[in-house]
Design a protein around this nucleic acid. Structure first.
Length: 466
RNA sequence: GGCGGCAUAGCCAAGCGGUAAGGCAUGGGUCUGCAACACCCUUACCACCGGUUCGAUUCCGGUUGCCGCCUCCA
């Protein structure tokens, strides 16, 4: 079955057919780097990292580009307030971004272009738009002439008349039409700026993505993604710019993720109700956060609260425990060569359901349900007295594959125990053998206080950190 | 005002024409020296009112409530 993607452009799920067979060009709008990212910013990074992983799992060669907006009003303001150079500030938060996002299990993009590295390309692009009549200079600014672009509004499904009602009117004097937006902004006193045919200035916000997407992926890209709030005006404007430039379709599939809410309200930097990834990941296992976010379909809102995260934590622990129990059992199992087909068949069936879920517009909620079913099946299998190494390995291999798609690779309980802990464990084993349960329980409690949980199983004792 | 989304068990969340996946939590049982892990059992008049249909949680119309975009924003 082909992958179905909900395309904002058509408001329908469509079969995913990349422009070039086997290859996917993907562009995801990245952050404006003037602060640490909050978990709302992290959602698209996680969601589309997962999309990318699944496409790769399905054999596609994905080229993934995600930009940094490293010059803009908010950055300039923040730099001024902190008495820092714009470049220093953005370097700092880009580094922080990579740390945060990698903790959340997101791979780096193939390219992370920065606006300030593309000023010359942007100037050239704007020049052409002016030449083509799609843009005009006005008092050192350059604006996009939205009236001239026939498809304006096609992504947000609004007619220009409807949009006009809500359009902001300040700066209206400089614009021919309130819907027009800035491609180039004339410098204000003390601001960072670059030379251009229209004098000193800097790029507008929307132009960067058109330019960098084209620069790194070409005229037409397969998937363009970002948060729901970017649909209008940002993505709408990108389409206007790029398609006016090339005369070709800019992006074939537009994907937009839903928000993360706090108390049922959008989390945003401007509302001030945000939770920084940098803070929260020190309190909560970042993988739990990822798991939590993926437990809801990417287009639906996620409500964030401590209770819900705890519930996600318990859920993920169930999966991890099942996996670790499989590994533990492997040590005492051999290949018996019988009955394995039934179990392998069931495992494959679950894997298949996982793929069907992901095929259906990356339904990670259902995909995770499949992983829970796999955990259940594994646990049921582990109840059997005689387990076979082949079956266990098939379970483990399947877990590894599916969890890698979700960006939640299973890590084993590794690391060695301290010598004195080892000694205590030895002592406990002897105590239990002698039915000295008092001493045995003492040791178990003592180690538990140190964060080491001992479990006695039919296949011997095992420990885990908890 | 325009465009759009959502309303499913105590909580979270899939499903979207054939009387409801999964998870968390709760209660009861089994396993265990006791635990832990695990297993079994247990819980839904799918917001409301109409309509279409043999049949609707699922489609259509309406009502109510919540949320978002239209302004920087993931």
């Amino acid at each position: 079955m082909t992958i179905q993607i909900y395309n904002t452009l058509t408001r329908k799920k469509e079969p995913f057919i990349p422009l070039e067979e086997g290859k996917v060009k993907m562009y995801v709008c990245g952050p404006t780097v003037y602060n640490y990212i909050h978990i709302g910013n992290a959602r698209p990074v996680i969601a589309f990292d997962t999309v990318r992983r699944y496409l790769e799992y399905r054999g596609y060669d994905v080229t993934y580009v995600s930009n940094f907006t490293d010059v803009d009003d908010k950055i300039i303001k923040a730099a001024n307030e902190l008495g820092e150079e714009v470049g220093e500030l953005t370097d700092r938060f880009i580094a922080a971004y990579f740390e945060d996002v990698s903790a959340l299990g997101c791979s780096k993009a193939d390219v992370h272009p920065r606006v300030t590295d593309h000023i010359e390309d942007i100037v050239q692009f704007v020049k052409v738009l002016i030449d083509k009549g799609f843009a005009y200079e006005s008092q050192g600014d350059v604006y996009y002439r939205t009236q001239k672009f026939e498809g304006y509004g096609k992504l947000s499904h609004q007619s220009t008349d409807e949009l006009k009602v809500g359009a902001r009117i300040e700066e209206g004097i400089k614009k021919e039409n309130p819907l027009d937006f800035a491609l180039w902004k004339a410098v204000k006193v003390g601001e960072i700026s670059w030379e251009s045919p229209w004098g000193l200035g800097r790029p507008g916000w929307h132009i960067e993505c058109s330019v960098m997407a084209r620069e790194h992926l070409g005229d037409t890209i397969d998937i363009h993604a970002g948060g729901q709030d970017l649909t209008f005006p940002h993505h709408e404007n990108e389409i206007a710019q790029s398609e006016a430039m090339t005369g070709k379709q800019f992006a074939r599939y537009w994907m937009h993720n839903g928000y993360i809410n706090i108390d049922n309200e959008k989390m945003s930097k401007s509302l001030g109700n945000f939770v920084l990834v940098n803070d929260i990941r020190k309190q909560i296992d970042p993988k739990v956060l990822r798991f939590f976010i993926l437990s809801v379909h990417y287009r639906h809102p996620v409500n964030f609260s401590q209770d819900l995260v705890v519930s996600a934590e318990n859920g993920l622990a169930r999966i991890r425990t099942a996996y670790n129990n499989l590994k533990h059992r492997l040590a005492t199992s051999a290949d018996l060569g019988d009955q394995k087909d039934i179990w392998n068949y069931k495992v494959n069936e679950i894997k298949n359901n996982f793929e069907l879920a992901m095929d259906d517009d990356f339904n990670t909620a259902n995909a995770i349900a499949s992983v829970f079913e796999l955990s259940k099946l594994a646990n049921v299998y582990l109840v059997e007295k005689n387990t076979q190494s082949d079956v266990l390995k098939h379970f483990i291999h399947t877990f590894d594959g599916l969890m890698t798609v979700l960006g939640l690779p299973m890590d084993e309980e590794t690391g060695l125990l301290d010598e004195d802990v080892e000694t205590l464990i030895e002592e406990r084993i002897t105590a239990r053998r002698n039915k000295d349960f008092k001493r045995s329980d003492e040791i178990r409690d003592e180690l538990k206080a140190q964060g080491i949980i001992l479990e006695d199983t039919a296949q011997g004792m095992r420990w885990k950190r908890g």
